[in-house]
């Protein structure tokens, strides 16, 4: 049994909308092991993305704890959280969120430059990552010159830049055709096998669910571990 890398304990996130309190998360216990591909499914507005944001240190919980790679995120300040995201987490978004002014290579370089990696090493690593995702011939293209599938591969390369232990993906195939989605999931599986990274995917897509080693369902802020079929 491999080690636990993400663990939430009685996680609560409360929003106030006017006078009404809304529980986006209401006592969520979640666990992911190193090297797992975890799926989180559930209807829109069920709290999936909120959970992902808590694990990624983008948002603070109202109650409970989030421990990622041995660190309790609720005890970190904004600067420490930024540093944590930079080094431990890679994000993948439904709409890729690449920076439109930059080439594929430069987009992958951005997190490296935030981590103050020197220029030459940065370029070398970015190129290496793009080759890993099969885009070594597209390094000088800007996002609007790439297909959706290619853009998402650039986003994955960017997420991997600082060798994070966890990749958080919010609907990674949500904007892709099934062919691209299939090859994207193949890539994720390959990366997991090569680097033993942990992937947590929030998704609706059965193609993604199929690749997961375990799947949680969230409904109305409560979580439940599915039996793998």
């Amino acid at each position: 049994m491999s080690e636990t890398i993400v663990q939430t304990n009685k996680l609560v996130k409360k929003y106030r909308r006017g006078k009404i309190e809304i529980y986006a998360l209401n006592g969520v216990d979640f666990e992911a092991l190193r090297g797992e591909i975890v799926g989180v499914v559930g209807p829109s507005g069920s709290g999936k993305t909120t959970l992902l944001n808590m694990i990624g240190g983008l948002d603070k919980p109202t109650g409970g704890t989030v421990v990622v790679d041995g660190r309790d995120l609720t005890k970190l300040d904004a600067g420490e959280l930024a540093d944590f995201r930079l080094k431990k987490i890679g994000f993948i978004f439904q709409f890729y969120n690449l920076l439109p002014i930059y080439t594929a290579l430069e987009n992958v370089e951005v997190p490296l430059s935030f981590a103050k990696v020197p220029k030459e090493e940065r370029e070398e690593r970015a190129f290496e990552l793009l080759r890993l995702v099969g885009l070594e011939t597209r390094v000088d293209h800007k996002p609007d010159e790439l297909s959706g599938g290619e853009q998402q591969r650039v986003a994955i390369a960017r997420a991997l830049a600082n060798r994070p232990s966890i990749i958080l993906a919010d609907e990674p195939t949500g904007d892709l055709d099934s062919e691209s989605a299939i090859s994207l999931m193949k890539l994720i599986r390959k990366l997991k096998e090569q680097h033993n990274q942990t992937f947590i995917n929030v998704t609706h897509d059965p193609l993604v669910v199929q690749e997961c080693t375990k799947v949680y369902t969230i409904r109305d802020g409560r979580i439940q571990l599915n039996e793998k079929t």
Binding site: G56, G79, A82, D83, F91, F93, V110, F114, A115
Partner: peptide, 12 residues
């Protein structure tokens, strides 16, 4: 874009 930069680790 700013949100993305922060998500991938940019400090304020």
């Amino acid at each position: 874009e700013i949100g993305t930069l922060k998500a991938i680790g940019a400090k304020d």
